[in-house]
């Protein structure tokens, strides 16, 4: 597998050069300290330059990085006693969405997550985290249980979208997502969703109508994939770069538009570069969110939820 994304190439070339130089210094006992120092300074500047100025499309690449940590990585790391619970009681268990209960610092929580695979075999089993109606119905069943037993809900969003398939349509994909939105509107427990990779359209929102929405710095959340938008708008999928820019699908843009509540920073180069650090950032933010949401009186929490979504797209004229 390639070690770096296209836009990172100069960084990795320079890193190779430095390694080479260090090796040479060792082998030949030449004093190359000054050269090495010079290149290392240049590397710092280069990294700064590249990672501080990521384009929307660069971030799409990071969000889709095959080594990007998945929901289960975070679940294993951040919760104790995670017990996965399966099935929608209607049709079958959908492995694209994982649900269960766990303890978060002693607080019982309900966890709902779209789960990508880490290799082809896993991805086929998990259908690339694209859920069928039964996945959304399983999630809803767990949300209702969370409400019954007064547990906060934490959703991890990471999907290209709901599965576009024959069975999915036959079993009411639209209805399943719509039903979740309607039910999530009135859940009498706090809820938080975190976009950890790709937030693909209605399929993402189907578990994401929550009191707060957080996004990892390099994750994306979009009404349509940049490729899809480019081919519909300009009949040219290669214009995905421009579409990514125009769609405003980055965390920073969406924070500015007041659609998400907070951005969770990522290690330099993306979550996959330092999982421990990433999990720690996530931890701090989950703790903050749950503490805040639990401090709100229930009626206020539910009114706040309505106000949050009501103001999106509100027209002032």
């Amino acid at each position: 597998m390639k070690q770096f994304l296209d836009f990172e190439k100069p960084i990795f070339e320079l890193k190779d050069k430095i390694t080479e130089l260090k090796q040479m210094a060792e082998d030949s006992e030449l004093d190359l300290a000054e050269d090495i120092h010079r290149l290392e300074t240049r590397l710092v500047n280069l990294e700064e330059n590249i990672y501080q100025h990521l384009s929307a499309w660069d971030r799409v690449q990071i969000a889709r990085h095959p080594e990007r940590p998945t929901a289960l990585d975070y679940i294993d790391h951040l919760f104790t006693d995670f017990i996965e619970l399966h099935g929608d009681r209607l049709f079958r268990d959908d492995p694209a969405i994982i649900t269960g209960i766990a303890s978060y610092k002693g607080q019982p929580v309900t966890v709902i997550a779209q789960q990508r695979g880490k290799n082809t075999k896993e991805n086929i089993y998990r259908n690339f985290a694209s859920a069928h109606p039964e996945g959304y119905r399983k999630a809803l069943r767990q949300m209702k249980l969370a409400e019954k037993f007064n547990r906060p809900i934490i959703s991890f969003i990471d999907t290209k979208g709901a599965h576009p398939g024959k069975g999915a349509e036959e079993r009411g994909q639209g209805e399943a997502i719509a039903r979740n939105l309607k039910e999530m509107a009135q859940l009498r427990v706090p809820s938080l969703s975190i976009v950890i990779g790709e937030g693909g359209s209605g399929g993402a929102l189907g578990i994401g109508l929550t009191d707060q929405i957080y996004m990892l710095e390099n994750s994306i959340y979009s009404v349509i994939s940049p490729e899809g938008a480019a081919s519909i708008l300009w009949k040219d999928a290669t214009k995905a770069k421009e579409a990514a820019q125009s769609l405003k699908l980055n965390a920073k843009d969406l924070k500015q538009l007041d659609i998400i509540d907070d951005i969770i920073p990522e290690p330099k180069g993306g979550a996959h570069r330092d999982f421990q650090m990433q999990a720690a950032y996530l931890d701090v933010h989950i703790k903050k969110s749950i503490k805040y949401l639990q401090s709100l009186p229930l009626e206020q929490l539910i009114e706040r939820r309505w106000q949050k979504y009501k103001k999106i797209g509100e027209i002032q004229n």
Binding site: K182, L257, Y309, I312, G313
Partner: peptide
């Protein structure tokens, strides 16, 4: 963009 997507949430609510 996302303003459009979030109308799903708003109308369902």
């Amino acid at each position: 963009g996302m303003i459009s997507l979030m109308q799903m949430a708003k109308t369902a609510m």
